[in-house]
Design a protein around this nucleic acid. Structure first.
Lengths: 220, 220
DNA sequence: GTCTATAACATGATAGAC
DNA sequence: GTCTATCATGTTATAGAC
């Protein structure tokens, strides 16, 4: 499939692109800049990445892999839901810390329902399902009732998307505002988890589930 | 400022563009197509609209004006919160009914924090503030406690954005899925309004408000 | 000052030679 | 696998018509 040399060229193009995106932003970086920086031709860059957006997708995959790696360490350490969930968000922020300029390109692609790297598209499916699974694992602890885990995972993942959108807009040092927002939202959310898990909440859960199912938002 | 003739040319360009966007989608329509369809030159099109996105912004403004007009009729007719809010959403869906292909372009621009027509940008401010005000009016009825109106308006407007995103993705006939989603979400949401308005919920309201304020999400 | 047309530019993407 | 040449299209500059 791909030779050693091709592998290296691909990596060089990816690294150059990400570094340029970080420094100057997604729009400001041209594919010609990327090719020149990687000391290859425009055609070669397009040989390895079918579009500029595809490079962002590769970044997205890298972030996910790193997040999973570090999340698993946290999961092994603690069974406290709050800690686990909070860690998942903070981890994400740590990983993309220096990438605000890059995230603009990501957010745009991801929000575009027609884009091949949209959150809804099939090419991002692996990362999307993996991310949801990560939240599913985070809430899979004795403290959280079985019945609310699936719903909770989807809700937390949706929040994760919203946080990334907020981050692109947050210019506070060290993403302080976004981090504060994570804390505030979790402080609001976490107390209702036991309530939702109680038998009294069964009709409400059913109502929620029916709504999400009808909307096609439930994984099958 | 602008002459009669210029006015007509501008309108012709806008109508042509929207009609082409509707038929073929935003990306598939070139500015050259628009100019040709409006029987004018490319330069003229750019004289009247500084960018392709700006045309979408003009559409956005048209939708808002129509929505306000029809909302005011509903507000005059009923003081029931549920009905008023539901009408605001259904109205929106009615107005953009035939524009799914167009909305793709809008969503992308709106989500891009750097775009000049982003939800966050100043050029969309008038429409954004107007839309939030519309929700503020919808919930300004005796049944809804003063204390929850501002919060409620922001929450409902956020939901409105999410619904538009969902709509771009909903290919069911007559946007049935999106309409169902509106109903389901409101059925879930409306019962908690009186609870949130009660004095017991004061600490919760304060917590929420503090969080939104720290995040800069509260209009000042 | 208001408007229109033409040419040119920058850049994402593709085709085909090697 | 890689490169060069070329295309398509969003955007800008500019000249000038009314």
């Amino acid at each position: 499939m791909s030779t050693e040399r091709g592998e290296r060229t691909r990596a060089r193009i990816l690294d150059t692109a990400l570094s340029l995106f970080r420094k100057h932003g997604f729009d400001e970086t041209t594919m010609r800049d990327v090719a020149a920086g990687a000391e290859t031709s425009l055609g070669a860059a397009y040989y390895y990445f079918e579009s500029k957006e595809a490079i962002v997708l590769a970044y997205y995959e890298k972030v996910y892999a790193e997040r999973r790696r570090r999340a698993e360490q946290v999961f092994a350490r603690t069974a406290d839901v709050s800690e686990r969930v909070r860690a998942l968000y903070q981890l994400h922020l740590d990983i993309v810390r220096r990438d605000r300029k890059l995230l603009g390109g990501l957010v745009r692609s991801v929000a575009d329902p027609l884009s091949s790297v949209s959150v809804f598209s099939s090419s991002t499916r692996e990362v999307r399902d993996g991310s949801i699974a990560l939240f599913r694992e985070a809430v899979s602890v004795p403290d959280v009732a079985e019945e609310v885990r699936d719903l909770g995972a989807i809700a937390l993942w949706t929040l994760d998307l919203a946080l990334m959108l907020y981050l692109t807009w947050d210019d506070s040092p060290r993403q302080a505002r976004t981090r504060q927002l994570v804390d505030d939202v979790l402080d609001l959310l976490m107390p209702i988890v036991p309530l939702l898990g109680s038998p009294f909440a069964a009709p409400l859960r059913a109502q929620l589930e029916r709504a999400l199912d009808r909307a096609g938002l439930l994984p099958r």
